[in-house]
Amino acid sequence: MGQVKSLADLRKIKEELQGRMSLRENSNNPESLVQVKVAMATCGIASGAKQVMDFFIEEFEKRNIQAVVTQTGCMGYCFAEPTVEITLPGHSPVVYGYVDTKKADDIIEKYIKNGELVDGIIPVNYETIEKK
């Protein structure tokens, strides 16, 4: 059996991670970040919300995009799960439905990078969103 990783190893790589973090600008100003919320009620989870969330986290790092990825409870669109709410800095939130990794890729390349709308937007009356 080889050495199993522990928190002591995390301490060792921390400095390197810190260096990478400080290379990025704006990281301490949430207003300037792209916000992504993945709906994670039962139906979202059952239809693949976790893979979608993993994908966003990994791809934002690879593509060097400043973003915060979080989860929310139900957004009320069972029929269109997984759903994702994207807020670009200075814009109103937009909700996309039926998001798989391919759609997520489109959302990153077209909407997040260029502000072009992508198919699959769910028209939302924000009053109806359950604040869970």
């Binding site: 990783k5 190893d9 995390l10 790589i13 921390k14 390197e16 991670l17 790092e61």
Partner: peptide, 24 residues
Amino acid sequence: ATLEGMPISEAGVIRFLKEMIREN
């Protein structure tokens, strides 16, 4: 406590922790 202020949500930390749990 180990991260001393660096958030767990940092992609490199996420990757490390997943690996650590898997190995353990």
